[in-house]
Every structure is written in structure tokens, then in C-alpha cells.
Amino acid sequence: MPDLKIQRKPLDLRPDLTMWKIEGPLDAESIGYIHREFDSVLESKQNFLVAEMSGVTQVSSAAIGQLMGCRQLLVERGGDLVITGVSLDIKSKLSAMGATKIFKFYNELRTAVNAYHWEVERKSEMVWMSFPPELQFVPPVRQMVSRIARQKGYTNRDSFRIETIVDEVCNNAVEHGSERLKKNIDLNIKIDREKIELEVINASDPDKIDALRALSTSMPKTPDAKLGQKRGRGLALIKMLSNKLDINFSGDGTSVHVTKLREE
């Protein structure tokens, strides 16, 4: 059986991050080797290490214990040691050793880097959508945004509120959109660990713009104000559910910008 080989190199996707390409048997005899290689990682002041293990043929609890110790040191320094590329067989064995409760596993390097961006660097991610100004498109759109929020770790309560906000803003965009221009509605979503920002842009006919501007300035303070009042309730609801609401009118359209902070 060939010996264990650990090759240390920068990640192609992010050369400032370090990867270990581990090949061969991670057995008890490899503990010393892992220790020496890890010392050189620490010396280079790297706190985030991706162990790429698609070439690992065997795992022992002693070697995994050694890797857990390495991870602990990195976590104490504000970093992590994450694992990618393990086969289902090796993953089953790691699960039996309890390693899956300690390490974060990613299918591939790309996902590990994405997680680093999101969790450690707190970077935001963008989604751009465009859909026809027809009411039947609004439910799928609002549910997609809500699902993205849930997928990114927002609570069900937050996700539901985000869904309501998207629903109201998009319904307004459909209702007040231009019948003449037949232009799609654009929805831009910026999401990070702390907040989600939504921007909805729709074309409007010039004669509608003034009416919309008047409506936005006279919006009721609460959604249930006056049963007889037909308009403005949606905007009031958005205002209550969100942390910031801006509406901009230009010569040919409207853009609504909403910020919703994440609740923990």
C-alpha cells in the first residue's frame, strides 16, 4: 500500500487560502507526518485550511483524532479546518468515528470557499431576477426569495416576513407598471449574514408617476388604517416589516429599495 502523501498548496480559487491534498491511507502511522505538516501551516500564519481528501483510501481514529487537534488550534485562532471531497465509504467511516460532528464537510473546494466568504469574511451574495409584470408570477417569485433566505440560515419568521415584503412590493410593481412599455420587472436581492436588501424596479407611464408619488407620501402609518381606504396599505405593511424603505421615482419608472435586518 502506498504511503500517505500530504501536499500543501494555495487554493486555485483563492491563492491566499491553503489546501492540503491528502492521498493514501490516513492510518495511525501518519500521526507524526500530519503533526509536522501542520506545524508548517501554523508557522505560515494560515488559520483556514481545506483538507481535500478525495484520494484518501483509509482512515483510522488515531489520525482523525490528530486532525481534530489541528482543527481545534485553528478554531482558537479564529479559523477552521474543513474537509472536502471524501467518498461515501470514507464518509461512513468518519461518521462512525464521530468526526462528522466535529468537522464541516463540503462536496468540493468551491463550496468550501463559498462558505469561507459567507461565514468568515461575511461577504454578501447577489441574485438578479426579471419577470413579466403579471400577477401570477408574484407567488413563485416571493416563495423563491423566502426559500433563499431560509437556505442562507434566516429563521422561518424572518423568511415569512421577507416573503410578505416581496409580495407587496411586486404586487405594487405589477399594478403600477407600464401597460404601454410591456417591460419586465427587475428584482435584485443582496443577502448576507446580517441583512437582506431588495430592489424592485418597474417601468411606469409618466402620467402615473405623479399619482404614485402622491400615494407614497400619504401612506397610512399602520396597515389597518381606515377600512374605506383602498390604497397604501401594502406600503404601510412593508414599512412595518422592514427596517428601511426608499421609493424613487424617475421619468420612466419606479424603484423600491427595502432593507430587512436578520433577527437571531
Binding site: 463559498n114 441574485v127 438578479w128 431576477m129 426579471s130 413579466p132 403579471e134 408570477f137 423563491m144 419586465n184
Partner: peptide, 8 residues
Amino acid sequence: YVFKVKFP
């Protein structure tokens, strides 16, 4: 009807 999504 045309709709688009661009995502990470």
C-alpha cells in the same frame, strides 16, 4: 413570457 434568474 420571459423570465430570468442570475444567481451565485
